[in-house]
Design a protein around this nucleic acid. Structure first.
Lengths: 141, 141, 141, 141
DNA sequence: TTTT
DNA sequence: TTTT
């Protein structure tokens, strides 16, 4: 039973094809970006448009599904929590990254062909063999 | 009619009393921080706790309500959109800030005494006289 | 400042073209239905699918936009509150209806042509002349 | 990967203590009601208040947690999906019931004492022995 | 039937 | 920096 709510819901389009990697222990991680466009009218009647970009991260099964079904330009619904990570690079510079750790994803609009990926599926089988549970923050990217 | 969804919903506790300021044109802006605590169990049975901090910004009427009714430690529900702002300081360093621009707020738990603020209310009247509509990004903070 | 949250978010397809009517005072009301499909796997590996139907109601400007842009089969995102109305028909039978009173709507998927409706737009102008604010529950339908 | 969104989020107070029962196969189900109060101002400056009542259903682990920690009057956050069930009673009358099938629950406000329930815990152990997975709609209530 |  |  949690004591806090941290929920983000997005609808937007993928900025690029998703990328899948693996943690040292073999857990799949898929990342992609979503552009969300907001339009509004100012008091003097002008129309404004602003695009906000989000970094989305998915883990485990959902990571594989995202890699397999999503591609650049597609419209998706994504739900998850907001996470800020801070780290230092090798030169000691501090960085902050804000990500949506998604636990739900829905493809919107017309159905596209699932990516043809016999190859993909095979490689999944191999890598997936070590699927022990790991900490999410174990993975540096 | 919008074409994108960018929604954030938080429940957490205020890290400090809210601060209210005004844009050059007299529009009130209130900022505060919210801590959201997440707890989960790892596969080896350990219990983890992680606190995420959020910067919340409110405008106009809601800014005044937040200033008037919220105080450090209080539990609130906040709903809004996620906004990333990038700017350079006077020395040319680049900064990024991520904020929740809230359009709804609910006080949770027991009712606290509204802050005694005859003084506050008066000053509101004065400042509020110039209430023309301005762009949100007009305000640097 | 509200003290309760009652929020519904749906993504689904319209079951029929929306219908627009007017309250006695001239306020537009548009109603339509949305089908939301849920799929899940049972423990014995069977795949289940269930479709839930929702009655959606919109008022004012949004009612006009829904009438103008939505049509049967379209995929939409809808956000609003859940409302239960109880009433008796002329024969004394009691009825209950559950509706989503939507305050946000987004068209998903590919953009369709806006319905050609010079006629529609004209009639809107006429009817719209009496646009005083009325109680939502004033309208029996 | 789902193709529809059906999400309800509520904050309100419990109208009565939750009730826990078991399906024939031993799966716990807990039901309770939540009151959500909405206040708004009409155009002529009057203040209105309306309370909406929701039937909430929880299953499995969450059912046990709700039974154990919730009691009448408590403020909670509840998240789930909207479900309409139709059935006929023994006299052939048709009924419709609308429920929130919750999958998340958060207690809001001050912490109350967990209900003292050594007895409760014991009885849980016994009944829980048959914890096979069953269909949700298997349970008539 | 709850709460403020 | 909050809360439990």
């Amino acid at each position: 039973m949690s004591r806090g709510l941290n929920k983000v819901m997005l609808i937007g389009h993928l900025g690029r094809d998703p990328e899948m990697r693996y943690t040292p222990s073999g857990r799949p991680v898929t990342t992609f970006t979503i552009a969300t466009t907001r339009t509004w009218n100012t008091s003097n009647g002008e129309r404004h448009t602003e695009t906000e970009w989000f970094n989305v991260v998915t883990w485990g099964n959902l990571a594989e599904i995202c890699k397999q079904y999503l591609s650049k330009g597609q419209q998706v619904y994504v739900e998850g929590r907001l996470q800020t990570r801070r780290w230092e690079d090798s030169e000691g510079n501090k960085h902050t990254s804000v990500e949506i750790v998604a636990n739900e994803m829905m493809i919107l609009g017309e159905r596209r062909e699932p990516l043809s990926n016999n190859h993909f599926t095979e490689s999944l089988q191999e890598t997936h063999s070590t699927d022990e549970e790991i900490e999410e923050d174990e993975y540096p990217f």
